[in-house]
Design a protein around this nucleic acid. Structure first.
Lengths: 162, 162
DNA sequence: AAGATTACCTTGGCCGACCAATTAATGGGT
DNA sequence: ACCCATTAATTGGTCGGCCAAGGTAATCTT
């Protein structure tokens, strides 16, 4: 099917993805990164994705759910369900907002605050693993390029609130 | 809580993530990228993730499920369920392997082959959106850095088959 | 040849993430 | 006052992804 001497044979990129090698690499790295985060987070009783919610709550204190949704930029229904589970597992409390009976105030529990350092540790360790062997300059380049790409992926979606 | 003049105040990075700014940016970009891919793929009747399976099948023809699992590097159960849905939607056929009664042979249907070009188009468009405004040099740097990071995230998981 | 081990796949359960549709409360316009 | 658009959350459904177990079938061992 494939000739051993053809130079293209050493490239395992699928034909349909030849036009987007970077996207392919990005997708692979993304999944690896999330999986690695998940493995580390599991020891703390958190599921991947919950970290971002908790981080925001630790920083900002009690906050409207709508504010949280904007901050993490997720679908409202996603956040609702996540918060239900985080409440169940004791990481979060939810209470109705007296000033707006539609809204819900979310707050990290005192117990969960003990996790802040652990999560910070996990996050730092993940960073170290991710960037191992990269020079300071490479790291700076990487964040710069990620920033550009992020901008590109936000626009055109016709709603990227700043 | 935060002083308006503190230079750190313009940085919205959560405290717990200060030790991993790159990981944070990578996570954001990853989700945006996947969402963008999903939006484009939906027009073709594919869900994000299925593309990779189909790409491999289009390239390699009938293939053992175990081979497919290794190729896309996903959990076997994930692939099983994905294939059940892909079969249901007519993109794939599955048949028992006569040479090994445990195994299953998977093949892209003729109908699905019409999607190859569309997926390639989607993938190229996604690439263009992702990398818009980046110079040839920046793009090369980005793939290089992604490669390094991928290597870092593979190792330590103690199984990264080449 | 019988038993232990390994390989291949499936099932069930859980979670993150999306969309579509709904309920409930607020606020603006006339 | 009233109606109506907007905003806040929720529910139900579907998928991709993981883990833990389980059930066959092939293979290795003794």
């Amino acid at each position: 099917m494939t000739k051993p001497d053809d130079p293209a044979c050493t490239d395992h990129t699928p034909l349909a993805a030849r036009g987007g090698p970077v996207s392919l690499a990005l997708a692979r790295v993304a999944r690896l990164h999330r999986t690695a985060a998940g493995r580390r987070l599991r020891g703390l009783g958190l599921y991947p994705g919950q970290e971002f919610v908790m981080m925001h709550l630790w920083d900002k204190g009690p906050v409207r759910q709508s504010e949280l949704i904007k901050a993490v930029d997720l679908d409202p229904s996603t956040v609702t369900k996540m918060l239900q589970r985080l409440e169940q597992s004791g990481h979060v409390t939810r209470s109705p907002d007296p000033r707006d009976r539609r809204a819900v105030l979310v707050e990290a529990t005192d117990a969960s605050c003990g996790l802040l350092e652990d999560v910070a540790g996990v996050w730092a360790a993940l960073e170290e693993q991710t960037l191992a062997g990269l020079s300071e300059l490479d790291r700076a380049e990487f964040v710069r390029l990620l920033g550009l790409v992020e901008g590109n992926l936000c626009t055109e979606a016709e709603d990227c609130p700043d």
